[in-house]
Design a protein around this nucleic acid. Structure first.
Lengths: 253, 253
DNA sequence: GCCAACGATTTGGAATGCAATATTAGAGGG
DNA sequence: CCCTCTAATATTGCATTCCAAATCGTTGGC
């Protein structure tokens, strides 16, 4: 750490800050999005400490919006704030991840049930299209595109359920496991299984078979856990940063 | 509005601020808890605008921790922050509430399934005890106690599932409908139905019948929607504050 | 009498400054 | 050589201050 005065070290300025096309969002929101992405894309490692001054100056903002953003990320459980000791990137234990995937499974089961009833034909056709795009990425072994399309398909099914709270909740829990699933996807060996399951899922949606879609989605997420636990945790340490935490901090009740 | 300089007008100082027994939590957390309670207990009305300077001085804090607290409550969807226009207490539409109850139903279904497997006999006995206490409150027509015990029972079942993310998610969605369920409980006429359902729920837990408990809980929440929609929305306007909102603000993707 | 433009005031957004707490480095003693 | 106590440093917590945007009241024109 030689330099100290250089404002922008490794991360540039905020993306939206310069291109003021969308009516300029509050700084806090921009910072929250930026830091959230940094966590979710594994640029900030689990367990890593976040120093406010440092990160704020890297993002060319003051500590105030960064602190507000950290509070948001804390309630999204992406960071943990230890009183008087600062923020660290969340580092869920395997059993926690398992629990999150179960929650996502339950949410998708609910979403699928209602999507089968409420989705428009156009929505279903679009999901089918995304599915084909995903197959293309699979064929090319383009794992990143595959992963993102996979996420988008599931999100679209949830969206088709027409339940705002479900969408929000799903998105939030999903963000918590995004990084882990992303890493798992990059090294996953049993890749074809998920593809087959997806075909069934789309079919159930097209035939508007609510019960079957619900079951398939729930099972699919259970299967995701199997893959994640095998890929991520079996092969070396999942996290790259040294653990700084002294144990989970309780919530404020 | 005659006075302007009196610091504490209608709300006293923060509860924990004076009794510094628990290692003094950060102000932001205290403020978040206080304001959350004010919203959830209907002291701040849905749609009501929150003026930062005013509320901050009423709570004897500066705007900084209040603003941080509002960001937390925003991501809990208890307030809505309109850029440059301040925060208003969330005022979900009936269909939103319905969606939230469906989500809670799905979460409790999952929680019940695992609680039936993982709960200790002590936990089950404690839940049974809470159930009897609730019956006592029912018999006395003590609606407030009944309501709180009801909430506690459901929370305990979730807790017995041993899934941290599930507990957190459940708690968060639950907070969003707490006020509405509370109001509904106060005027609910078909009260005995829920009591009968609870008896079945406890029985299913005691026999560790996971499938049945899961189904019962899901149905129970569906039933809750029936009551809430009948009690709260049919009888006069659910919210007491005038609407200030121009429509839901999008989230920041 | 109604509406639009303008200025004063209020309110939220963000940066800065100061106090309190935690962390680190170093000296001294065992 | 290790441990402990202490002083220096770094970091967070919170209040204050400054700035920009929105709101409100007023005036002037139609």
């Amino acid at each position: 750490m030689a330099e100290k005065n250089s404002a922008e070290k490794k991360f540039g300025t905020l993306p939206i800050a310069e291109s003021n096309n969308v009516a300029r969002l509050p700084l806090t929101s921009q910072v929250a999005t930026t830091v959230r992405d940094m966590i979710v894309e594994d640029k900030l490692k689990p367990g890593e400490r976040i120093r406010e001054r440092q990160l704020a100056s890297e993002l060319n903002v003051s500590r105030t919006p960064l602190r507000e953003a950290l509070k948001i990320l804390e309630s999204e459980k992406l960071v943990e704030i230890l009183p008087n000791r600062g923020a660290v990137v969340a580092d869920p234990a395997p059993e926690d991840v398992r629990g999150m995937l179960q929650v996502i499974g339950a949410l998708e089961a609910l979403g699928g049930r209602h999507a089968a009833e409420n989705a428009t034909d156009e929505e279903i056709a679009e999901i089918r299209a995304l599915h084909y795009e995903m197959l293309a990425a699979y064929s090319r072994k383009d794992r990143l595109t595959y992963f993102k399309l996979n996420q988008k398909i599931h999100g679209s099914i949830i969206a088709a359920s027409r339940n705002a709270a479900l969408m929000e909740t799903h998105e939030q829990v999903n963000a918590r496991v995004y990084r882990i699933r992303y890493r798992s996807n990059q090294r996953n060996t049993l890749w074809h299984e998920a593809v087959d399951q997806h075909e069934e899922i789309i079919a159930a949606l097209e035939t508007r078979n609510a019960d079957r879609l619900s079951t398939l989605l729930s099972d699919h997420l259970g299967n995701t856990w199997a893959k994640v636990s095998a890929d991520d945790y079996a092969s070396g340490s999942g996290s790259s940063a040294e653990k700084l935490r002294s144990g989970d901090v309780g919530k404020e009740t």
